[in-house]
Amino acid sequence: MLAEAVTLETKLSARNVHMTFTRDGKSTPVLNDVNVDVAKGEFLCIVGPSGCGKSTLLSAIGGFLAPTGGEVRIDGETVRGPDPRRIFVFQERGLFPWLTVEGNIEFGLFKLPKAERLSRIAHYIKMVGLAGFEKAYPAELSGGMKQRLEVARALAVKPDMLLLDEPFGALDSITRLIMRGELLRIWREERNTVIFVTHDIDEAVQLADRVAVMSGRPANIQKIVKIDIAHPRDISSPRYLELRNGILEQLGLAHQI
C-alpha cells in the first residue's frame, strides 16, 4: 500500500509525529509516533475513536500546532505555520457572519486583481450551487448551504490541499449524504489533495481512496485501508461491507447492536 503511494508523487509525509500537551505541569501525550504518506490528489480519510487526536493531527498538518516531536513535510518542505496553499475547513463555524456569501468567498483573494476576484467568486458560487444567494449572510443560509460556502471559500484560493475536520458533523443525515456526493464531485473537478477527518466509518469508506485508522490515545495510525471500489460506490456491495467491517473490527467494535 505504502509502496503504491510512493510511486505516485508524495504530497505530504508525516514522520514520527509526536504531540504532548502540557497543562498545569501535567503532560498528556496525544499523538505517539504517527507516520503517514499522502499522494498528490489523494483523498485520505482519518477515522478513530472520539478524542483520539484526529483533529490534533489535522491541526499539525495545517500548521496550527507544532508537533512536539517529528515533522510534517508538504512538498518536501517542513510545515511551520498556516498557509493558504492548504486550507482548513471547519464544521461551517469558520464562516465570517459579517460578510455576505460573496464577501466570504472573496476573503482570501485579497492579493488578486479585481477582475480575477470576481470571476473566481462567480465560478465557485456556481460550483457549490449558491447562485442567487450572493448577497445573503451566513445566518440566512441552511446548514448545508453554509458548509458548501465554507468549501467554496476554501477552494477559491486554489489550495493544493483541503483539510476537513468533521465537516459534515453538524448536518442532518440526509444533507450529509448529499454533501458527500457534492464533495466528491468537486474533488473530481479540482483534484486537490484532501485529508478528511471523521468519526463516521461509513462516511470514510464512501469517500476515501484510503482510510487511516487511528488507535485510542496516545494515538498512532494502526492501519491504512485502501478502498479499492470505483466511484460511484455501491454501499450494499459485498466489498464495501467487507472493508467497512474490517475497519470496525480494527477499532474493536462489534458489527451488531
Binding site: 495545517g62 496550527f64 498556516p82 493558504p84 482548513f88 471547519f90 469558520g94 492579493k111 484560493v157
Partner: peptide, 22 residues
C-alpha cells in the same frame, strides 16, 4: 472566537490584516 482568527491566518493574513478584517 479563535476559529475566526485561525481562518484569517489560514488565508494568509498577518497581524494588521487580521485586526482590521477579522
Amino acid at each position: 472566537p479563535a476559529i475566526y482568527r485561525r481562518a484569517g491566518r489560514n488565508f494568509g493574513l498577518t497581524a494588521p490584516g487580521l485586526l482590521a478584517r477579522v
